[in-house]
Design a protein around this nucleic acid. Sequence first.
DNA 1: GAGTGGTCTAGACCACGGT
DNA 2: CCGTGGTCTAGACCACTCG
Lengths: 231, 231
Amino acid sequence: MSQPQLNTWQSIQKEVLRRIHAREWPPGHTIPNEVELSKEFGCARATVNRALQALAETGVLERRRKAGTRVALRPVSRVTFEIPLIREEISNAGQSYEYRLLSRDQAPPANWASALGSTIALHIQSTHHADGQVYVVEDRWISTQTLPQAMSEPFETQSANEWLLANIPYTHGDINFAAMGAPDTIAELLNCPADSPVLVIERVTWDHDNALTAVRLYYTPGHRLESQIGA
Amino acid sequence: MSQPQLNTWQSIQKEVLRRIHAREWPPGHTIPNEVELSKEFGCARATVNRALQALAETGVLERRRKAGTRVALRPVSRVTFEIPLIREEISNAGQSYEYRLLSRDQAPPANWASALGSTIALHIQSTHHADGQVYVVEDRWISTQTLPQAMSEPFETQSANEWLLANIPYTHGDINFAAMGAPDTIAELLNCPADSPVLVIERVTWDHDNALTAVRLYYTPGHRLESQIGA
DNA sequence: GAGTGGTCTAGACCACGGT
DNA sequence: CCGTGGTCTAGACCACTCG
């Protein structure tokens, strides 16, 4: 019963996870409160609190004042993807990276970029290559209203993505993943038949209430986004 | 300089974010250390620590002992998806839910399910419906070695997913997202032409070193996974 | 109302990692 | 070496929410 002094929050977290995995504390079970656990483990309540709070953030535990701490009925699967710079994504994989600007003009934004809200925007199409092969096609719209300074950027050697990250602060964004048949022009660039199923990541970035940019990334067929689930 | 007493970690976090977004602390900038900030804000160091640690977890700050705390050069985009029970995903959207078992037999696992490692496994195919329309096709393999108790489950009214979550503990999993052309049998179920681009989520779940189950979810064409990015 | 988690404090010691 | 973040403690008060 009395543990041999667990006094780091990580060791407490580990022990709590062990009990959950071993079904000593099955799903739905209300576990002892912080004071009791701190007595059992021989540590301060704050240490137990740190451990349990971290587990609550990952969805393993559910905590409510007065009601106590319960083992989540459904260990909510929470998947986190890191979205790296494409250049890093490629060079981290040990491949050579190349960026090519395809077009740069101004036009009314595509429907999917309508969040930019203006009648005209800077439109930049480019490709990112890994070991000489096209890896992803970038189709980007930049608001000329909120980012007039983008008008004077060539985007010939530095991708819009990198320029934006380095120079434009943003507060939040929307992102979504979908499967799509590659449109003709994209398919040509990706060296695949038209309508090939490709993974598309669409992102809109904001600074407070101002939409800055909307981008679509068309990945080469077969591309996978991988991640881990921890319970 | 002296703030009007910021003494909750959330208010400190907010102020730090404000300075970052306002470029008072630009990317790469080393911010004052915890002791200095606690003096400026008029609070305990632990409170500052709590705020900065949370920001470091989200990738906004980078912290190293002795080196101090820097504003991340590239505010790492970290996207988190919650993977709900399909039933909840549908009923939360205000639609009626229906589950249908299509087949249940034993066979050698498909290639993508080879993590199960055995020569034979329980194979369950089913569909989940929203408002009478097929929403997702579930193609699942369950290890008969590690989960012999699954053999006696009919999975006729309760989906394998829900049975597993309710009864089988797991420690971790691999997950990946890809675009795929719908195979003939899947396309028929989804009421779409063969080879239609569909989003596929593939998941393998483990209990310590034992692979429990591998599942593929084929989403109806046009399905999107949506999330937010916070900077 | 009362029990539980949420948070703050002031102080202390430790561990890492630049210099 | 020694500055910085990482963590623990003991105690306190507060805020939520269940009954």
